[in-house]
Nucleic acid binder design. Structure first.
Lengths: 248, 248
DNA sequence: CGGTCTGTTGAAGGATTTCAACACTCGTGG
DNA sequence: CCACGAGTGTTGAAATCCTTCAACAGACCG
């Protein structure tokens, strides 16, 4: 290969001032469950949120901690990871600006069931769970919007269960790459570049395999000119072929 | 083995009259998301539901059909199955009286993503999705309750993903038996009997394995006096040992 | 420029699937 | 009432996919 192998990813870092009070209102209106609200309501809701900045690889909260806050990604990417006794991790979701995370359910204990970690430098808005719940009662349209999003996540979670039980690792990886390209893909010189740091272990934890197997399959895809990949980055050259492989 | 092998399961059949208008109000108040409502509201909501009866093994709706109704189990058990191209099935959930099913999301297409099938004779209440949604807007407390239930299902769905990616088949089966015993278990002469017809294939589809492997593991458990089992039924003799095996 | 982290590759071993044959149970009809 | 057939469950053996262990190579960081 002629080209250099250094990362083509864009810089996600931002000074703390970039995660400032000024931007909150604008960002809040981007959040799917607030988009339908008028400006007055939005301003009122805005009061209840506070902003925080985290560097890449920082843990935002740990699995099994007491859950008190609901959070929203404003800038960067956040991953939700579930740890197991024997050191294996399961990567449950990779979140984008606009996505919420944290615990909901008041039924059951208020404990985070997964760890949230900053995949890049991130800016996060947070609200006390108790405040958010009274907000749901005050604005039914928000409650319905949140319900829709949660129902969609349940759908895709069940889809993932189907994949785990019926598809080979190669197909599962092809599938997750297509999904990630829809969420994080950005056309550039390398092809459809996934705009987030993504290691072999991240990939493996997403599809439930070992990093070695993930590596083998990625090498295979690269040999077939379906993707280009380097340390912590992946670009897709031939999305159609990938989608074909994912097809059951 | 000395004992007879005929099914110890109770009879789920009921005349259509048992699934009657009279019982609706009583049953509706059992549904988790209506329990907090006063009688007046409940009576109003009751108007919008209609009841239906299905025999065991009847399909209530098919995957990929247009989704128009939201349903609630009143009597019997319902299974949600996702079919795949190559003939494999994934058993997503086994529902009990009080559980709702059908599609929510208005975002995305209104298509059932799974097939619902009567596992026993069942009685089902149903409401038009559009009516249910306006009901959510009228009664925020219902919306919040439904959200909580959906969030819990998302939780357990993610738990299942963790199991599929990190546990052996034996541990997964031990785990699902413990779960089913909490939901359908009934103490009787055989031990803790799971009160629903349950084939090896059902079990296999729940934990993502082949019916042969499920059979081998069930035989193994039976040899160790952990369970008793026959055609379409399972009783747990030693739940503690089963829970130990499930432990990671 | 050396150390560390990430990714690659090979080979052996293990868990599970698949194919195949057989056994048991239950319902139905002779 | 019994016999038969279909559906369900069991078991063995070979094949497959994937994991694990191990060694090494390339990229990034100070």
């Amino acid at each position: 290969m002629a080209g250099r192998k250094t990362t083509p990813l864009k810089d996600f870092s931002l000074g703390t001032h970039r995660c400032s009070v000024d931007l909150r209102l604008e960002k809040l209106s981007m959040v799917p469950f607030f988009t339908d609200l008028d400006e007055g309501k939005l301003t009122a809701i805005n009061q209840q949120f506070s902003a925080a900045h985290h560097h890449a690889d920082e843990t935002i909260y740990h699995q099994d901690e007491r859950a008190t806050m609901l959070r929203v990604v404003v800038h960067g990417a956040v991953k939700l990871v579930r740890h197991t006794m024997d050191g294996k991790d399961v990567l449950l979701d990779m979140l984008q600006p606009g996505d919420y995370f944290g615990n909901f359910s008041t039924t059951g204990k208020a404990i985070y069931s997964e760890t949230a970690r900053a995949q890049t430098d991130v800016c996060i808005l947070s609200i006390r769970m108790s405040n958010f719940r009274s907000l749901l009662n005050d604005y039914p349209e928000v409650a319905v919007a949140v319900l829709d999003i949660t129902a969609d996540r349940l759908q895709s979670s069940r889809e993932k269960i189907r994949h785990l039980t019926t598809l080979t690792v190669k197909k599962r990886i092809a599938h997750i790459l297509v999904m990630l390209s829809e969420k994080f893909g950005e056309q550039n010189a390398y092809g459809l570049l996934l705009q987030l740091p993504l290691s072999r272990k991240d990939l493996a934890d997403m599809v439930g395999t070992s990093s070695e197997t993930a590596s083998r399959i990625m090498s295979d895809f690269q040999d077939q000119d379906i993707i280009k990949t380097g340390r912590q980055w992946v670009a897709i050259s031939d999305i159609n072929r990938l989608a074909d492989i994912a097809k059951e």
